[in-house]
Structures are given as C-alpha cells and as structure tokens.
C-alpha cells in the first residue's frame, strides 16, 4: 500500500507565507578596508554593508579583528599609535575617514557601549546628561526630559527615579551597563556599537540587555561584538564571522547558524575550532 502523494510545489505555499519586507536602507558600508598596527595587518580587505534598524553581530576568536573593525565605525582607533587604515568606511553615505570629518560630530551619530560597565564617577543624572552637557546644552528642562526618556528606554527609570542624585557607581553591574546604554541614547545617535556589552554581567542582566536590544533596534542600528555565540544567535539579524583579520562569512544569522557556507565558520560555531 504505497500512499505517498507527490508534493507538487510546497515551496510555493511556503513563499506565500513570507511577508515581503521593503528593502532597508544601508547605513554602514566598508569598502576594501585594511587596518594595520605598525607592520601587523589586523584586517584584510573587509567589505560589508549594514542595514538600518538591524542588529549585526561580529563573532570570531580573540584577536580576529572584530573589535578593531567595530572601532573603525566611530574612529576610536585613532588614539592607538601606529594604527593606520586603508579603504573607506561610509556611514550614512559619508566617508568618515576624510580629513575634514570632525570626530566629535561623528561620535554623536555613532555611540558606543563598552565591555565593562564604565559609568563616570558622577551622579546617575550627570552620567546620562554628560553627552549633552559637553555639547554646551544647559537648558535644564531639556536635559531632564532627555535623561528621563533615555532612562525609560533602557528600562532603568523605575529602578532609579528616586535617586538620580546618587552616584552611578552605587548601581549593580547590570544597572550600570544599562545606564551606559542610556548615556549613549541621550545623545540620539543613529548607530550604537556594542563591544561585548554583557561579558561582565550575570545571566539575568544579560537577558535584560538582550531584550533591550530588540526594543532599541526599532529606532537604532546596532552592531555588536560578542564572544558568546548563543548571544549572537539570539539577538542578531545578521552575523559576520571574522578569522585572522578576514571576514570569512557574512549573512543572515539563521543561515549562519543552521547552514554556514564556509567550513571554517561551521568549525567555529560548532566549537570544533583548530
């Protein structure tokens, strides 16, 4: 009794179920980027485009160049002696390594959250308002509005609303990191770079920040470097795998984690590395 039906075109029905999303705008683009530290080439001919309102994860073993690349987007590498870059990095179609670009202006557009929570030794309020104050904004009500909004956006408001004058250093690690994100949001950047933002946090705080990223990507574009592959899987839309200064593979996170095209990627994400 053979009863198998010939499946005509199940893929057709499948495609019908997919919603067609409008193409997103490219916000970050790197063209043939080479980075050197002295004679050491840290990045080799990197080409990548990152879309607006997405979360992109950079993964790869230590020293693969992912952090270096991330820091090219807000030129935080500028202070490293012997650092040099070739090729072009464009943000919002503007070449950011042009001589006439004011780095301070760039960094208002491209915020950054670091590995270890690094609040300033100031009050919670002053931490969040810092980015605005250094722009010369003194309007009290404006500052207050922004601080409150930023703290609400990172779901910290309810926890700290009665103690805005308290030192930020008194907060827990997870709260500090959310404060650091709020501090970045207050400046209203387009892009938020995150350099292993949860590697110093406990699992609950990590989960909170991951959830936060889903909210934030509605308004911001997030690029995150992470050592935690599961984290990249959970939170990112696209994943880029770096190895020894090469961009080995870049694609939809689902594809990278279920069917990587390159053997090296597969070896890394399955933990069979080297």
């Amino acid at each position: 009794m053979v009863e198998t039906m010939t499946i005509k075109e199940p893929m057709d029905a499948l495609v019908d179920n997919l919603q067609v999303e409008p193409p997103k705008k490219t916000l970050i683009e790197a063209r043939n980027v080479d980075v050197f530290y002295g004679n050491f080439q840290a990045l080799k001919n990197i080409n990548i485009t990152i879309e607006e309102n997405s979360v992109t994860a950079f993964i790869g073993p230590s020293g693969c160049g992912k952090s270096t690349f991330l820091r090219c987007f807000n030129r935080m590498n500028d202070y490293i002696d012997e650092f040099s870059i070739k090729g072009e990095v464009l943000i919002d179609s503007k070449k950011i390594y042009w001589r006439n670009v004011a780095v301070e202006e760039l960094r208002k557009e491209v915020g950054m959250v670091f590995q270890k929570p690094n609040p300033f030794p100031k009050s919670i309020f002053d931490n969040v308002a810092y980015g605005l104050k250094i722009q010369g904004i003194k309007d009290k009500t404006f500052l207050e509005e922004r601080v409150v909004k930023s703290l609400k956006d990172v779901a910290l408001w309810d926890e700290v609303k009665d103690e805005l004058k308290k030192s930020a250093l008194a907060l827990s690690g997870g709260q500090q990191q959310r404060l650091c994100i709020a501090r970045t949001l207050a400046v209203k950047p387009k892009i938020i770079l995150m350099d292993e933002p949860t590697s110093a946090l406990d699992p609950i705080s990590t989960a909170k920040i991951e959830e936060l990223m889903f909210e934030l990507k509605k308004e911001y574009t997030i690029v995150i470097v992470t050592h935690n592959m599961q984290q990249a899987g959970r939170i990112s839309d696209k994943t880029a795998f770096f190895y020894m200064g090469d961009l080995v593979e870049y694609g939809e996170t689902k594809q990278i984690f279920t069917n990587p095209k390159k053997e090296r990627t597969q070896n890394y994400i399955t933990g069979r590395f080297g």
């Binding site: 807000n74 202006e105 208002k108 915020g111 690094n118 980015g131 501090r183």
Partner: peptide
C-alpha cells in the same frame, strides 16, 4: 575606560 566613554560620547 572612563576616557573612552567620554570620547565615545563626542567629547573632545
């Protein structure tokens, strides 16, 4: 890290 944070926020 403190200096980085400040610079990353656009401070000179």
């Amino acid at each position: 890290s403190i200096k980085d944070a400040s610079m990353a926020l656009g401070a000179s």
